[in-house]
């Protein structure tokens, strides 16, 4: 895999561009905003320098990666791409519009991947004619550090598309896992009870926030407890994921959000980013 197109130069798009460029791919990084593109290149530059300082990559690799990335605000060069990874906003209509444009701009062989974490790949694919080449590639944040990529098989995704996508993930130095297009895929789904049961236990008065976190770390052997992790992720983000799972499954009780989450979001206590969540970070 030599030439990759990336649509959307936000946190995830820039991170994926970084990973692809380091692995030796030529990368066309697309965004409609020049400002977003400039910021993305700055962020990639910072991370590359950090990588060299920490001797994770050599200076040659960093300069190679730099010259591999070409920012663009059009899809003109996308006819050269073997794979396009879309990392735009999490909005079905926006993604569908992008895929329709890509179908015109790219060759029929180009694989179309969406880095969605919450939308259905099948629903995104349905906007174009050639649905067999549409796949989900769910990178985790930050993409250059997280080893996992979920490769999501939509209803119409071909075996060929799945195989090439998994190969690309391996070429990026990441570990692919294959999952059917279902709400939350693997990680966001199976992690739900980690937060959901902790919130229930708190709500039922079984133990306090601090005690539940301490128990999960010291008895369970987890790196972080559920409440400190929700504070890190953002209580609003975590609540939105849970809510989306609950709605997408037409009210499956295992994914039912908790009143505590809603109250914290209403109070503007969103975790570390607002200095207050389940813990106080104002000091």
């Amino acid at each position: 895999m030599k030439t990759i197109g990336i649509v959307g130069a936000g946190t995830m798009g820039a991170g994926i561009a970084h990973v692809a460029a380091i692995s030796g791919c030529r990368v066309f990084l697309h965004d409609i905003s020049d400002e977003v593109l400039t910021k993305a290149l700055e962020r990639i530059e910072t991370e590359l320098q950090k990588g060299v300082e920490k001797t994770k990559i050599t200076a040659e690799q960093a300069s190679g990666a730099r010259s591999n990335i070409q920012p663009t605000s059009t899809f003109n060069d996308f006819s050269n791409c073997e794979v396009v990874i879309e990392a735009a906003l999490e909005d079905l209509e926006i993604k569908r519009d992008i895929f329709r444009e890509l179908e015109t701009a790219c060759t029929p062989e180009t694989i179309f991947a969406s880095n969605t974490s919450s939308l259905s790949i099948t629903a995104i694919a349905a906007s174009i004619k050639s649905t067999a080449r549409v796949v989900g590639l769910h990178f985790f944040n930050p993409p250059h550090l997280m080893k996992l990529v979920e490769v999501i098989r939509g209803n119409e995704t071909s075996e060929h598309t799945m195989q090439r996508s998994a190969e690309l993930v391996s070429q990026f130095g990441k570990t692919p896992v294959v999952v059917k297009d279902t709400p939350g895929f693997i990680v966001n789904r199976i992690a739900r009870p980690f937060y959901g049961e902790a919130l229930r236990l708190l709500g039922e008065g079984v133990a306090s926030v601090e005690e539940i976190d301490r128990i999960v770390r010291l008895e369970g052997g987890f790196k972080m407890g559920p409440f400190e992790l929700m504070d890190l992720i953002g209580i609003d983000v975590n609540f939105a994921v849970t809510r989306s799972m609950y709605e997408q499954t037409f009210g499956e009780p295992r994914y039912r959000p908790h009143l505590i989450q809603q109250t914290m979001v209403n109070a503007g206590m969103l975790g570390r980013k607002t200095k207050r969540g389940f813990y106080d970070y104002s000091q």
Binding site: I186, I190, F194
Partner: peptide
Amino acid sequence: DIDLAMKLGTNYPR
């Protein structure tokens, strides 16, 4: 893949 995903994606101990 489920085990791998939970260990690499969310840092679970097992």
